[in-house]
Design a protein around this nucleic acid. Sequence first.
DNA 1: ACCTGAACACCGTTCAAGT
DNA 2: ACCTGAACACCGTTCAAGT
Lengths: 259, 259
Amino acid sequence: MIAIDDTRLSVVRSHGGPSTARGPLDRQRIIGEAVTFVDEHSLQELTMRRLGQRLGVEAMSLYRYVDGREDLLDAMVQQTLVGLDVDPHLRLLPTDGWQAYLQRLAHGVRDIALAHPKVFPLVATRHPDAPWLRPPLRSLTLVEAFLEALIERGFSDDAAVAAYRAFSSFLLGHLLLEVSALGAATAPAEEPLAEPTSEDDGNDVEEAGTERGRNGSDERLAEFPQLRRLEERLSQDDAQAEFEMSLESLLQRLELTLS
Amino acid sequence: MIAIDDTRLSVVRSHGGPSTARGPLDRQRIIGEAVTFVDEHSLQELTMRRLGQRLGVEAMSLYRYVDGREDLLDAMVQQTLVGLDVDPHLRLLPTDGWQAYLQRLAHGVRDIALAHPKVFPLVATRHPDAPWLRPPLRSLTLVEAFLEALIERGFSDDAAVAAYRAFSSFLLGHLLLEVSALGAATAPAEEPLAEPTSEDDGNDVEEAGTERGRNGSDERLAEFPQLRRLEERLSQDDAQAEFEMSLESLLQRLELTLS
DNA sequence: ACCTGAACACCGTTCAAGT
DNA sequence: ACCTGAACACCGTTCAAGT
């Protein structure tokens, strides 16, 4: 008599048993399941109907807890970032300077981006709730803490606000690049499966006026000597180290605005 | 909350003429129309059927020129960026240094982002064609030119590649932030139209257990003294000047790696 | 050669009705 | 109180058929 709470309700067609899996359903569970669904599949594949199925209910039930798909997406963004608001490790300690705080904060956001690379584009591109909230630091609590930390440590109001913007755009740029590259490497989640067609009949006449850009990325490279020469270097990157260095450089730049 | 039906993009008869307006249709015209449609409405609203309507054909006709919606989106990204490849103003002139070139390039990309703020998120988040191409500089020609310019001016291979990445993430962060803020200001494009419902009877009881975060962004501010104090400063920004300064600072940083 | 009608397999969302 | 059946207005996409 064990309640198997393992998560293999993937294609559960449980029309037989009373699927009293986990009680009534609630907003939190919906959002959480939506996030892990996107982690495992993709944003495109996230569908009210599929999400319902995954939770053992019909899609319509979700509308009791969620104000439609848009609301769901907003909630997912908030949910993935909520750790930043509460993690005591990310608090500004009396002992450390603003640099240490920003370092921890930056790494906190990066950890989230890497943990949910398929969700992060949402964090980056959804319109924030307030016009002066900038992604990816999109919560009042967080921005308040940010400003407080800097002002308390000697930043002027203007310098603190400028730092908020510089920090935001730094994180946005670096992390989006990083998850984008990561997506290319982990790619095969988008398209289900392409059946191996019996090609090779050489009948592929390139469509007359259409000029479809199938870049072989190996063929085309002939015309681009630098790219060909540097292809390997361009492919390999130590994102971690790069992040560290750029962050360091940003902090130094901010330090200059202090005097 | 409100039914979202009936966007009234009724038939767009271009000049009062019947449906067959401009000859047979071609890929270029489709892509162009898609871009201006998104400029005027939003990505969400871009639909094969609506796009067809706009071009005076049925949706199915589009599939002769476009390999489905995904292909369309990719083509739109390429299309909005193609100016960078060909604009002679953006070429590396023999007379100027790499700084001048990067300045022009940066402003070229920025101009595009500002001209198509609704398309730019696509530029930022779609998976590039090659794993070592990083948004927003996503064309072989462009990256080749970039590397060439720097290497010719004294950058080592590694320094040039590092510069490419730093430049990319700089543009991505700044421009995404800028168009995001811009979207918030120009907001009303997302939701078609809210019919003037007769209810302004203030009967909005907050849902019982659901805790929906309707941040009034005026109310909630009570608990956040810094935000309240700095709200105005946070709202107003001179994106142009900020871009200029950050770019300048990036160039200086790159210069250091030269020695 | 180019376009469409009809059809298919899905969507998001609403609402009256079930339990 | 919570969920669902049925329905509606859309989607993207395919393909045989029209011109």
